[in-house]
Design a protein around this nucleic acid. Structure first.
Length: 273
DNA sequence: GCCCAGGAGTGCA
DNA sequence: TGCACTCATGGG
């Protein structure tokens, strides 16, 4: 089944390529995107973005389509920061995804001190090795592995798919989640959630913010990585060097819109400098 | 061959 | 608490 949505505020390339998800690939006129154990084909047709899948409800929520992004963009522009205004205008089709919290935790542990093309490759090999093979629209794909599978895999598996020194983080964290679960963190407010996420091996401030933002819907999070540091210096004339302080600066500036604005800035800087 | 990547853990002052 | 050092890997 399929549904469509005005493509002005729903651009497949911007949504998928901005660094919040690692499981998608160009196919035909659009993209094949996978989340947890579900897949969809997404493409633009005229002035509509069409999403074809076996679970429309899931992907309607995944793509955050109940939210009005025109208001977010208006507020972003009101700050009168050149990079942000340009990003919000040219990337108005970007949306923050509502992704699976376990998948985000494992994915962003892998992301540390790593580059996006490599992260995508590693996650792809983990899914191929431990996930279930499925097919949609004649396209083969693999589900994201369960915590049980990840916990059973062992460090050698993670090494073999290119995780490097992060092997032990994935092994320890998956075994902990196997015992404790992760759903008990779902109802926590942002600050308490981040505090709890920091107790997992391989999770520091930046990864915790990404997991909170993309996996737990905490839009008042503002992940600070090397690109945000660069933006802070070049586009905000900032002088702080401590990442936690830079995080506080941006969160107090953008409040409830922090997560959206972080993505406009991050993807905008990478796209047109 | 070097530099970098959506950083985090550890040890030591 | 702060800070330097180290940690695999491969794309550019």
């Amino acid at each position: 089944m399929k549904f469509d949505f005005d493509s002005t505020y729903f651009n497949p390339e911007q949504v998928l390529d901005c660094g919040q998800t690692f499981r998608f690939a160009p196919i035909k006129e659009g993209y094949f995107a996978v989340s947890a154990d579900k897949a969809c084909y997404i493409h633009i047709d005229g002035n509509k973005t069409v999403v074809e899948s076996e679970d429309s409800d899931y992907f309607y929520n995944y793509f955050d389509l109940a939210r009005d992004y025109s208001e977010i963009i208006t507020r972003a522009k009101s700050h009168n920061i050149p990079l942000l205004s340009r990003s919000a205008e040219e990337l108005k089709g970007l949306r923050l995804l509502n992704q699976n919290h376990e998948e985000m935790l494992y994915s962003f542990i892998i992301s540390q001190n790593n580059n996006i093309p490599r992260i995508k490759g590693i996650i792809s090999r983990i899914c191929a090795g431990l996930g279930e093979k499925r097919e949609f629209l004649g396209q083969e794909y693999y589900t994201f592995p369960t915590t049980q599978k990840l916990a059973e895999a062992g460090r050698e598996f993670f090494k073999s798919v290119g995780c490097g020194y992060r092997d032990i983080f994935l092994d320890e964290t998956s075994n902990r989640i196997l015992k404790e679960g992760l759903d008990h963190l779902l109802p926590l407010p942002t600050a308490e959630l981040k505090k709890q996420l920091l107790t997992y091996k391989g999770v520091g401030a930046k990864v915790a913010d990404c997991v909170a933002l993309f996996g737990f819907g905490k839009r008042d999070s503002f992940p600070v990585d090397v690109w945000i540091e660069k933006i802070y210096k070049e586009d905000f004339n900032g002088t702080l060097t401590d990442r936690n302080k830079i995080n506080e600066y941006f969160c107090s500036l953008f409040g409830e819109d922090s997560g959206y604005i972080q993505q406009y800035l991050f993807y905008g800087k990478r796209t047109f400098g």
